[in-house]
Measured scan of single mutants.
Amino acid sequence: MEVRTIKVFTTVDNINLHTQVVDMSMTYGQQFGPTYLDGADVTKIKPHNSHEGKTFYVLPNDDTLRVEAFEYYHTTDPSFLGRYMSALNHTKKWKYPQVNGLTSIKWADNNCYLATALLTLQQIELKFNPPALQDAYYRARAGEAANFCALILAYCNKTVGELGDVRETMSYLFQHANLDSCKRVLNVVCKTCGQQQTTLKGVEAVMYMGTLSYEQFKKGVQIPCTCGKQATKYLVQQESPFVMMSAPPAQYELKHGTFTCASEYTGNYQCGHYKHITSKETLYCIDGALLTKSSEYKGPITDVFYKENSYTTTIK
Rank of each mutant, 00 (worst) to 15 (best):
V206E: 00
Y284T: 12
K191I: 10
N147F: 05
K54C: 14
K255V: 14
F259G: 01
L290Q: 13
V221L: 11
A145I: 02
V203P: 12
K298D: 11
H273S: 01
T292E: 15
G299Q: 03
G267R: 06
G267T: 11
K233D: 00
G143C: 03
T55A: 12
M1I: 01
S294F: 14
L163H: 11
Q195V: 15
N157P: 03
T11D: 02
Q238A: 02
I301N: 00
E125T: 08
V189Q: 09
S294V: 12
L121P: 03
I277F: 02
L212T: 07
E52T: 10
A140D: 02
M244F: 02
R66T: 09
P300G: 05
T199F: 07
D23S: 14
H176T: 05
I277Y: 03
Y28Q: 03
G161I: 03
D63G: 15
C227G: 01
Q197D: 06
C182L: 02
K46S: 10
N110A: 03
V67N: 14
L126S: 04
Y274H: 00
C156I: 10
G210P: 04
T27V: 13
K255D: 09
D23V: 14
Y73C: 03
I124S: 02
Q237R: 12
K255T: 12
Y284W: 14
Y297T: 02
H176C: 07
Y297G: 01
V189M: 11
Y297K: 05
I6E: 04
H90C: 11
T226G: 14
Y284L: 11
D41K: 07
V21Y: 14
E125H: 08
S181L: 10
S294M: 12
L65P: 05
A250Q: 15
V221C: 07
N268M: 07
Q251N: 13
A132G: 07
I15Y: 08
R66V: 11
L17F: 08
I45D: 15
Y284S: 10
Q122W: 02
T64H: 10
P224Q: 12
K293C: 15
G267C: 07
W107K: 01
K191S: 13
Y138I: 13
G288M: 00
L37Q: 11
F80I: 05
L179E: 01
T292F: 12
F56I: 09
N129T: 10
Y234E: 02
P241R: 06
N268P: 09
Y265A: 01
I124L: 15
E52D: 12
A136G: 09
G267P: 06
L102P: 01
N187V: 12
V304C: 02
L37V: 10
K183A: 05
N61W: 13
Y155H: 03
G257W: 01
C227E: 03
H176Y: 12
N178Q: 10
T19L: 11
D41H: 10
T312S: 11
N111M: 03
S79K: 15
